[in-house]
Amino acid sequence: MKDKITLESPKIPREGVNRRRILEAARELFIEQGVENVNMHQIAKAAGVGQATLYRRYPLKGDICLEIVSEECQPLFDEVQAYLGQSKDVIPLEQLYQVIVSYVSFLESKVPWLCAVSRASTGHRPLHSPLCQWMRTTCRYLYSEASAKGDISDVDIVYTVEALLATLHNIDFHLKDEELSTKQILKGICRLYIDGLKASKSG
C-alpha cells in the first residue's frame, strides 16, 4: 500500500506545497479573525513561507480570496450541475428556485466567513466574485428558458438577475444581523423572483 502523500512529501512540487499552505493558513485566519482583520504578513507567517514567496504567487490578499472562494464553492457548482442534468422534466422556474435553495443552504453553513471572503475576492466589485459570476450565468439561463416556454413574460432578465444577486449578496447580514430565518428569506425570494414573475394564464 502506497504511503499517503503529505504536504512534506517530495512527490508534491514545492510550488504546490506552498500554495496549499498559503490557502489553508489564510482560510483558518479568515474564519478565526475575519478577512478584513488579516494581512499578508500574518498569512505568510501562519503558512510558514517567506513574504517574497507569498507575494510572488499572490500579489494581493484578494487573489488569495479568489482561489479560496473557487475551491470552497466547487461542491455547490457540482451539486447544481448534477441537479439540472437530472431534472430536465422540471419547469425552469422550479429549477431556479431549487438552485436558489441550494445556494442559500450552502452559504448558510459557511456564514459569515465565506460571504466576507467572496466580497473581498474582487475588491470593490463584490458581485463579480466566482460565486456571483456562476450564479449570474445559471440564473440568466434558467430565466431565459422560462421565457422561451412562456412561463414568464415582459421580464428584463438581465436586471432581474442583478436584483436577485444583490438580494443574495447580503445573506450573512440577513441571517446574522437581521436574524431572519432561512424560511423567511426563501419565501421572500420565491414571492419576488419566482411567483411574482409568472405569466398570467388567463384571457
Results as ranks from 00 to 15, higher is better:
I152H: 09
A47M: 09
Q95W: 02
S181T: 15
V158W: 07
A166P: 02
V99G: 02
P130Y: 12
D195S: 15
M1D: 04
L197A: 12
I91L: 08
Y97K: 15
V17T: 10
S129T: 11
D78T: 11
I64V: 15
A120K: 10
A199Q: 15
E24M: 10
S9H: 09
H169I: 00
C115T: 14
G50M: 03
S202D: 13
A82R: 13
I152S: 12
Y103P: 02
I185Q: 08
W134C: 02
L107I: 12
L107S: 06
R119H: 11
Y159Q: 14
K2C: 00
R14I: 13
C65I: 01
I64L: 04
E79N: 08
S118Y: 00
E179N: 09
E79G: 00
V80W: 09
C139L: 10
I185W: 08
S121R: 09
Y143E: 05
Q86T: 06
A82K: 13
A116M: 05
L186G: 14
E32L: 07
R125Y: 08
K187W: 11
R56E: 00
R191L: 14
I64H: 04
P10T: 08
L96C: 04
I5Q: 05
S129W: 01
P75H: 06
L142P: 12
H124L: 03
S153C: 06
I100L: 15
G150E: 09
L168I: 08
L84F: 00
E179R: 14
V111C: 14
I189Q: 06
D151T: 09
R57Q: 05
Q184G: 00
L168Y: 06
L131W: 07
Y83C: 00
K183F: 09
R20F: 04
I5N: 00
N37H: 11
F77H: 07
G50C: 07
I157T: 10
I157N: 07
V101R: 13
E36M: 01
G62S: 13
V99L: 04
T6Q: 03
K11N: 02
L114M: 13
E67I: 07
Y103N: 11
R56Q: 04
T53K: 01
Q133R: 14
N39Y: 12
C73Y: 14
R27Q: 13
G188I: 07
M135G: 06
D151L: 15
Y58K: 05
F77S: 00
